[in-house]
Amino acid sequence: MSELRVGAHTSIAGGVSNAVDEQLEYGGNCGQIFTHSPQVWDHGTIDDEEADAFRAESDANDVGPWMIHASYLVNLCTPKEDLRAKSVDSMQQELAAAAELGIPYVNVHLGAHTGAGVEGGLANAGDALDELDVPDGVTITIESDAGSGTKLGGQFEHLAGVQAETDHDLAFCVDTAHVWAAGYDISTPEGVADTFAEFDDVVGLDQLVYVHLNDSKHGCGTNKDEHAHVGEGEIGVGGMRAFIDRSVEEGLPMALETPTENGKSFAWNIERVHELHEGE
C-alpha cells in the first residue's frame, strides 16, 4: 500500500517558502500553489533566495510533490489569437517557475472553445501546447473539468483527445467535484471503481498523476462546480472514502480545494481524509 499523500492549496504571500510552513500547519505533506494572482496576467518574479528556501524546506520536511495551478485566465482551446498568445506566454512563465522551484507539475484547464466546437477546441489546445518549451523535470498536467457551457475537459474523451493533438507527453489531474458535476457517479465504491476503469480505458491510468480532492454542493451531472468539505457534500462519505483509498492504492497525491466555512478549514479536511482512509 502506498503512503497517503494529501495536502491543500496554500498561499505564497510573503514569499513562496511560506507555502511550506502553511502546509505543515494544516498537516499536509503535498500540495498546490499559485505563483501569482490567478485573476491577472502579470506574473511578477520569484526571488532566487525564496526559490532555494522553498526547495530546501520542502525536501527537509518531505512535502511534495507540489503542483502549480495556472492562471484562471488561460484558455488553451480559444480560437482568439490574442487570448491564445497571452495563454501561451503565461504557461511558459509557469513552466519556468516550476523548474526554478523544483515542482514537477503545472496544472491547467483546457478552457472553452467558445464556438470552435469540441474538435476545433482540442486542436487549438494542441497547437497552443506545442508552442511551449517544457523544461526537463516538469510536466504539463491537464485537469478534468465540470463541463459547463463550451468548456472542455468534462469528458475523459476530451483528455485523450488533447493528448492526441500535441507532441508533448501530458499528464492528467482528476478533480472529484468536477468529474461528479460532469456526470461520473463516484458516490459509491462501485461507481469509483467504474470511473477509474473508464479513465484507464479512455486515457490510461499511467497518465493520471494527481487528484484534486473535493466534495460537491451540487448533484451529479449538474455541471455546477462548487466545492464542499470532504464527506459532507453530495458525493458523500462512501464515495469520498472509496476515492481516497483508490488514490492511495494508485500512489496518487491529493490536493484539497475545499472551502473555509462552518468552522472547518483545510486542517479539518486533511484530518478527515486520514480518518476516512483509516476506516473511521
Rank of each mutant, 00 (worst) to 15 (best):
F266E: 02
A116K: 00
G263D: 13
A70M: 06
L205C: 10
V273G: 09
A255S: 15
G28H: 09
P259D: 02
F243C: 02
E57S: 13
V192T: 05
I46K: 06
D130A: 10
G27N: 14
T166M: 09
K86T: 01
A164Y: 09
G7C: 10
R5H: 15
A53E: 15
G183E: 03
Y184V: 05
L101Y: 06
D47E: 15
E50S: 13
Q23H: 13
E49I: 07
L24W: 08
F156W: 06
T45Y: 15
T222I: 07
E57Y: 11
E261L: 11
A19I: 06
H158I: 00
G233K: 00
G7M: 01
E22I: 09
A51G: 09
R272Q: 15
N18A: 14
N29Y: 11
G204H: 13
G28Y: 10
E22M: 11
F172Q: 05
A267V: 04
H158K: 02
D82Q: 14
G239R: 00
R272P: 00
A164H: 13
F156C: 02
E278Q: 14
S265Y: 13
H218V: 04
N124M: 04
E226C: 11
E50L: 13
K224N: 12
G154W: 00
S265N: 15
L256P: 04
S216N: 15
S216W: 07
E157W: 00
T195C: 02
L24D: 06
A182W: 03
D47S: 15
D21P: 00
M240S: 05
I244H: 01
A242K: 02
E131Q: 15
R84S: 05
A116G: 01
N223S: 08
A13D: 13
E119P: 00
T35N: 10
G115F: 10
A60W: 03
E100Y: 04
H274N: 11
G191W: 01
G279I: 11
S58C: 15
D42A: 14
Q155L: 07
A99L: 06
R55L: 10
V209W: 00
L101R: 04
E3W: 12
G115L: 08
A99R: 09
G121I: 05
A85H: 14
Q93E: 12
A146H: 11
L159V: 00
G126K: 03
W41Y: 14
W180N: 08
L170Q: 08
A53T: 09
I140K: 06
D89K: 15
T139W: 09
M91D: 05
I270W: 11
N29A: 11
K151A: 06
P259H: 07
G238Y: 12
A8L: 02
C173R: 02
L276P: 00
G191N: 05
C77G: 04
A177T: 01
W66M: 04
E50H: 14
